[in-house]
Every structure is written in structure tokens, then in C-alpha cells.
Write a protein that binds this DNA or RNA. Structure first.
Ligand SMILES: [Mn+2]
Ligand SMILES: [Mn+2]
Ligand SMILES: [Zn+2]
Ligand SMILES: [Zn+2]
Lengths: 153, 153
DNA sequence: TTGTATATTTGCAACGATTACATTTTTTAT
DNA sequence: ATAAAAAATGTAATCGTTGCAAATATACAA
């Protein structure tokens, strides 16, 4: 069967193997900014033989073909975004959800950087989202006194 | 002897031990955005007994006291900045140097994230700086065909 | 001074995300 | 059908970081 992801990969000179199509479909459908484990745990339900190495290899290929942008919003793991347009991200330190932010880079950068060539724009904010369960008054702490998505002190 | 870093730590409720003062002095003096190894390799010349764990512990303490900001501009290691004012960074993918960028976030779209509280601003650009040796025409490649500071494809 | 509690440093083991690599499986071409 | 090429898989290795227990330094009372 020919899916949307299938033709998308073909258009970008990526051989649409079964695994590659499934991984791209996941990214396009969920639009969450998943890490490797999120992709793996979701897809292994219908692909029991799937290897994590395949996901690493596939995403590295997608990045090289500019179909995916890596997100360095976490300090210990990468996240991946099938939206390669320039935009920013907000990560809630309580619930962990990563939200897209529209950027106006023109009046954000005050420096000239003459002669510099910029290839990648990474704009990441962190804080608390507007969900009631993420507000200061009632945010969840674990046994270490940290919020859900913070690492232990 | 009482140095500038010494009193700076005292003012911020950090016990100015010998190692902590040396690490803070390094950050304030070099103003490069070093990773752990850069700090370690520099300081071990005058502190042969220095442990890398001490540097990790010290920087974690500095971050908690808001004396240092962690930079997630690399995907596999943290860098550290003793300038905690809001500003952005540019990293040259050829020479690796990280330059400060002044930011103007005031007229950023605030109604985009209603009810959100932002604690951290991370703005990182990547590209080629204006040094002649970093320009497209003459940039250095290693045996893997990558530039000096890129990882192997 | 001496002893004792506390703070800090050190060295090494353990952890986890990522990568290297050899093997197996699938696809393509002849 | 056969061989070659491409892709996927499993496992070991890498490396930045953290956990932890022992060693050292500091503070402070007796
Ligand atoms: Mn996004
Ligand atoms: Mn800086
Ligand atoms: Zn939230
Ligand atoms: Zn450069």
C-alpha cells in the first residue's frame, strides 16, 4: 500500500522500506517530539522484530536528508521533529510536553555576526505550561522532591 | 588569599573551597564555554589531585545557586557559562568556538504561550564563523570527510 | 590540644544514550 | 535461481555523567 509517508520518502530520495515508512508515519502522526524510546515502545507493538539500532540509523538518515530536525532540548538524549521549518520549542518541566513556538527571528537577534553563515536555529524555552496540574501550587513531586520530569538533584 | 571569585562565592552562599574557587576563576577568566574536560585539562596542571567528579559536583552546585548556566548546544555533552544573563550562542561547526549573541526577547510573542511560565531561555545557532579558515572554500576536513568539529557521518 | 561531627574531595564502579560492527534478512539485478 | 547490494538486527563497545563509599579537610566543642 502506498501511504503519504511512503511517497514523501520517495520524493526525497529515501528508499521507503517498511521500517522507514513506519517511523516516518509515527513522526508525522504524533507530532510529539519523541525520543528514541518513545518511537521504539510505540512501534514494537506492531513490529516485534524492530531494532532500536534501526531507529537510530533511520533518524540519522532522515536528518541527513533534512526530513527531520534533531532537538537538543534535553541534556542526555535527543528528540526528533518531522517539522523542519524554523520554529522554537517550549518544554514543561512538570509534564514534559514539548510545544511548538512560532518565531520571529528578525527582531530577536540584535547582533550582526558579519560574515557568519547560520545553518541551524535552536530556540528552546523551559518552564511550566498552563495546565492546572503543572502550576506552582499543585505540581507533582516525586520521592526525591523533584518534579516529574526533572532529574534527581 | 581572597580573590574576586572567592568573595563572589561567599556572596552567593557557596563555601569557597580551594577547588570551587579555582573552577569559578577559570570560568570567569576564560569566558569560553567549556565542557568538563576543558576545565579538567586546564586545572590539573596546577592541581594534580583534582578529580573530574569534583568538577561535576561543583558545576551542579553552581547551577543550583544560579552562578552558572548549562549550555545544551552539543548533543553529547554539556557546556557551562558563568554569564547567567539571558543571551544566545553561536557555535561554528568548523572551529568549534562558541560566541555570545545579544538577544532581544522583549517583543517576542507573549500571547503565544498564555499562562506559561518561562524559567530558561536557550537560543543556539550553528554555522560557520567569519574566520578565513572556517569559510566554505577552505574549511578543513578530516579523514572521514567531516569538518573538524562535526561528528562522523 | 584532642577528639568528634560535618563538609568536601577523590577514585572507581555503574548507568544510559549512542555508536560500531559483524551477522542475518530482504531486495534488486542478472 | 543466483549473486550482489541494501537494509535490518543483535550485541559489544564507547563515553559523558552519576552513584557511592572511602579518604581528606574543616569547624567546633571539651
Ligand atoms: Mn516542533
Ligand atoms: Mn555565553
Ligand atoms: Zn506541563
Ligand atoms: Zn569558525
Amino acid at each position: 500500500m502506498t501511504t503519504k509517508a511512503d511517497t514523501y520518502l520517495l520524493e526525497n530520495n529515501v528508499n521507503p522500506s517498511y521500517q522507514r515508512v513506519k517511523i516516518m508515519e509515527y513522526l508525522l502522526r504524533k507530532k510529539n517530539h519523541p525520543n528514541i524510546d518513545m518511537i521504539f515502545n510505540n512501534l514494537k507493538k506492531e513490529m516485534p522484530k524492530l531494532s532500536k539500532t534501526t531507529i537510530y540509523n533511520t533518524l540519522k538518515l532522515f536528518i541527513k536528508r533534512n526530513l527531520v530536525s534533531p532537538l537538543t532540548i534535553e541534556d542526555n538524549m535527543l528528540r526528533y521533529d518531522a517539522d523542519t521549518k524554523i520554529h522554537g520549542h517550549f518544554k514543561c518541566i512538570n509534564c514534559g510536553i514539548i510545544t511548538d513556538i512560532n518565531l520571529d527571528l528578525k527582531n530577536m537577534n540584535r547582533d550582526e555576526l558579519p560574515g557568519y553563515t547560520i545553518f541551524e536555529h535552536h530556540v528552546n524555552f523551559k518552564g511550566r505550561c498552563n495546565k492546572k496540574s503543572c502550576n506552582k501550587k499543585s505540581f507533582n513531586k516525586n520521592k526525591n522532591g523533584n518534579t516529574n520530569w526533572e532529574k534527581s538533584a
